[in-house]
Simulated scan of single mutants.
Amino acid sequence: MYYDLRYYKDQTFKIGGLGGECIREYWIDNPKEYIDKCLKRASNYSEELKIPTKNILEKSFEELQKDYNIKDQNLPILTTLLYKEVRTRNHHSKSIVENLLSNYYIIVPLMDKELYKLNRFNENIEDDNLLITLIFTRYCPKLLDFKFEGRRSINKETIKFAKKINEKYPLKLEKPEFLSKTNEQMKNLTNKNLTKSNNSITYNSINKYIKEVFSSNSF
Rank of each mutant, 00 (worst) to 15 (best):
L5N: 11
R6M: 02
Q11K: 15
T12W: 03
G16P: 00
C22I: 05
I23F: 13
Y26M: 09
Y26H: 11
D29K: 05
D29W: 05
N30C: 05
N30G: 03
P31G: 01
E33M: 02
K40F: 11
S46W: 05
E47V: 03
P52I: 02
T53C: 11
K54C: 03
K54Q: 14
I56T: 06
E58V: 06
S60M: 08
S60L: 11
F61S: 02
Y68A: 07
Y68C: 09
I70F: 01
K71I: 13
K71E: 15
L75M: 12
I77H: 06
L78E: 04
Y83E: 05
K84Y: 08
V86G: 04
V86H: 07
T88D: 09
T88R: 02
H91Y: 14
H92R: 02
H92E: 10
S93G: 12
S93M: 06
S93E: 15
K94A: 11
S95K: 13
E98W: 04
E98K: 13
S102H: 08
N103T: 14
Y104E: 15
I107N: 00
P109R: 02
P109E: 01
L110G: 01
M111T: 14
Y116W: 15
K117V: 00
F121L: 13
L131P: 00
I132V: 15
I132T: 09
T133A: 01
L134C: 04
F136Q: 01
C140D: 10
F146R: 11
F146C: 09
K147M: 05
K147P: 06
K147I: 10
F148I: 11
R151D: 09
S153H: 10
S153W: 05
S153C: 05
N155R: 02
K160M: 02
I165M: 00
E167H: 07
K168I: 15
Y169F: 13
E174K: 15
L179H: 03
S180D: 12
Q185A: 08
N188Q: 15
N188G: 12
N188S: 14
N191P: 07
N191M: 11
T195D: 15
N198P: 00
I201V: 14
Y203E: 11
I206H: 02
N207Q: 10
Y209N: 04
K211W: 09
V213W: 00
F214E: 01
S218P: 01
